[in-house]
Design a protein around this nucleic acid. Structure first.
Lengths: 342, 342
DNA sequence: CTGTTAGCGCGTTCAA
DNA sequence: TTGAACGCGCTAACAG
């Protein structure tokens, strides 16, 4: 059976004083005698009293809870970002309400509405890949909830945003492939609805163009999702071309790992015949054989900074200050799956 | 600036009726005329009214929030369990407050206390590897919070528990190694404080004993943690022995992956010279070269079932019913890193 | 220094 | 059918 909690009224009755006196003692107000305070504090401890945050939240209109919505929690990427978020807000006494949209637009709306009802103090959102309009964000923002968008940008929606410079990461990677002498560089891209996928693809395209490489449609493939299985399927297509590519830049490591397995299966040598580059630099990527060249992202810092910005906005209500747009720099990590610069 | 929320009082004033009438309309009580109800509902929608869960929680003494504490959210293992939990409770309108202890005992206590203050309706806990006593669990339980322990058992603490049969998984794996002709089977174990590590080690030991294999201390190594880096270090020790093992059963896949890399580096063949078996069956494990033989765990189901049990306990206050102890069965997945049965 | 009053937003008595 | 009163647990304003 649920035990009744001890309230200040209980303490007050026990000591024959008023609840406010108890309250004062508990919050060490100056307007109370030391001896009384001591007695009250002792009793509180003895009776195992703890304040009811619900009542306080109702009173203060702040819950000290932050809402976090990510596409999926099972990915190394987003769980690391959450890691950064928690490390930032934990010390300030904020708790996290976390949910995953599973890349569903409707679910994202549902989750945010539920969190709004709980009166979270603010939102940290990484939109789903199927989020096609931002009415729900506007509504949340319009209701006065501070909101920070992270990792995935939403064009046309104004808010504080923290993202990684995917374009630059992709550009670096592809230019590196060019420098190592690769001639036919393919790209396995992600959902066109993802800002990250678009930017990485643009980085790929611009690196080709800048170096006077032709852009060949047959060398750009898109899979059903961003999984290793999809990587296998996409790579299969590339291997089946009349002329195989001699390098593949993948949207992420999962795809690259899938690609690696099918390349190996076909007896094609990495990196001698095909150079392979991923994106994300997941922990296991350095343990593959050959170890995977990839673009490392400051994803923990991304979580940290997003949380910091949200906390800043919580402190003083900003009326219409300009929004922050922070871009973090990724870094190419060169390993064995790509050729060396000759 | 934070916008004031619309309350039933606002609606009442607008319509010149009492707040209770509004309340009745909103909760479609039978004691209200249809026309009034319609007017009120329309206005509520127009004014964008939404009920304040805080006030309701205070009144009902239930928040519809569940507290989840895991050692680390960044692991595939725990994030998948959380996945199962959310899928189970989401449809019932429960929200999740999730935190990671980072394997810290003190942090675990702190987090649970914070959640208790928020008055979560119940707890789903996977204890940290440094949780040496269960006073905090007893306290939480004593305060009337329903509590389910999952994945990692805590001996001596009575509660509903859902775990995986690590012993059986390990036993299966090692017996399989024996069947394939391995003679010197080593084990890289995890922190002795983890029930999972103890059970897997016992499974290893018993499989040896049952098959009249000697138990050799030099073949059992323990690392600093359960990471791939640790796997490298532990495997190094095994390779440095006068007589190298011909099989290694690892506490988890991360360790096995590390071990695999150093084995390969030394030019030792897998599985011809050394068979390698992991535990967890992480998504990437099948993509390694050679692909990793591992013990798959029903971790999503573990989350699902834990959540189900917690929800069951929430419905009707059980006074002193016996606790449930659910054990899920793991499965050996045979791949290329181990020899075949001849 | 201390007690009383009021109210955060809501649902549930009880009376009308 | 409706409204007034009350209370969930707490703090702040006011009065002593």
């Amino acid at each position: 059976m649920r035990k009744e909690q001890v309230t200040i009224t209980d303490l007050a009755r026990e000591l024959n004083v008023s609840p406010s006196t108890i309250s004062r003692a508990l919050n060490n107000s100056p307007f109370i005698s030391e001896e009384r305070k001591k007695v009250i504090l002792d009793l509180a401890k003895k009776m195992n009293y703890s304040p009811n945050q619900l009542a306080l939240s109702l009173l203060n209109k702040r819950t000290k809870i932050l809402g976090v919505v990510v596409p999926e929690i099972t990915s190394y990427y987003f769980s690391t970002a959450i890691n950064g978020i928690q490390d930032k807000v934990g010390s300030s006494g904020y708790k996290l309400m976390i949910s995953q949209s599973n890349e569903s637009f409707e679910e994202e709306i549902r989750l945010m509405e539920a969190m709004a009802l709980v009166r979270v103090d603010g939102f940290l959102i990484s939109p789903s890949s199927n989020t096609v309009n931002f009415d729900h964000f506007e509504k949340i923002k319009g209701s006065g909830f501070p909101l920070v968008i992270f990792d995935r940008d939403c064009l046309g929606f104004e808010a504080d945003k923290v993202v990684v410079d995917d374009y630059s990461g992709a550009f670096q990677a592809v230019e590196y492939l060019i420098q190592t002498g690769c001639k036919r560089i393919a790209h396995i891209t992600g959902s066109a609805n993802l800002s990250t996928a678009r930017h990485r693809k643009n980085g790929y395209l611009d690196a080709l163009i800048k170096n006077n490489y032709p852009v060949l449609d047959e060398l750009i493939v898109i899979g059903d999702d961003s999984s290793s299985e999809s990587g296998v399927a996409c790579m299969q297509k590339l291997l089946d071309l009349d002329q195989m590519p001699d390098a593949v830049f993948c949207y992420n490591d999962a795809i690259a790992i899938g690609a690696m397995s099918i390349i190996r299966e076909k007896g094609v040598q990495i990196p001698e015949q095909i150079s392979l580059v991923g994106f994300d630099d997941e922990p296991y990527s350095s343990y593959f054989k050959p170890s995977l060249t990839s673009v490392w992202q400051p994803i923990y810092d991304l979580g940290l900074l997003s949380a910091k910005i949200l906390l800043d906005n919580l402190d003083f209500d900003k009326e219409s200050a300009e929004f922050r747009f922070e871009v973090l720099k990724p870094e190419l990590v060169i390993r064995e799956s790509s050729r060396k610069i000759s």
